[in-house]
Nucleic acid binder design. Structure first.
Length: 102
DNA sequence: AACATGACGGACA
DNA sequence: GTGTCCGCCATGT
């Protein structure tokens, strides 16, 4: 496994409840600014093995990036249960909920 | 090795 | 705001 992948997992694990981070942001924090797509890949492989708050990850527009299927619904409910306001189109106010790690 | 894929992002019309 | 195009980079076939 690439060290970057491990970093991504750590970053995601550190997102506080009630906050979100974007794919690109996670990629930057993990050390590879343009690896947003690898973050996506990590989420895919991790959702099966690791216990991570993947639902706190949204795209740069502050929206849920999944098709309106089961996973989408799961993410929506998870976010709302943490107190995050999610628009009907899956939009979130990043200025209000985005988390910036130190 | 070549080509396709993806829960992305930024630039531009 | 919407749609198109192109860059990114690990994986899968």
């Amino acid at each position: 496994m690439q060290p970057f992948t491990q970093n991504v997992i750590n970053v995601i694990r550190n997102i506080p409840e009630g906050r979100v981070m974007t794919y690109g942001q996670i990629a930057r924090v993990a050390g590879s600014p343009r690896a947003a797509r690898q973050v996506v890949r990590v989420l895919h492989s991790m959702s099966k093995k690791h216990h991570l708050p993947w639902h706190r990850v949204v795209n740069s527009k502050g929206q849920i990036s999944i098709k309106e299927d089961d996973s989408y619904h799961e993410q929506l409910l998870s976010l709302e249960s943490e107190g995050i306001e999610v628009g009907k189109d899956g939009s979130i106010d990043l200025g209000k909920y985005q988390y910036f790690p130190e």
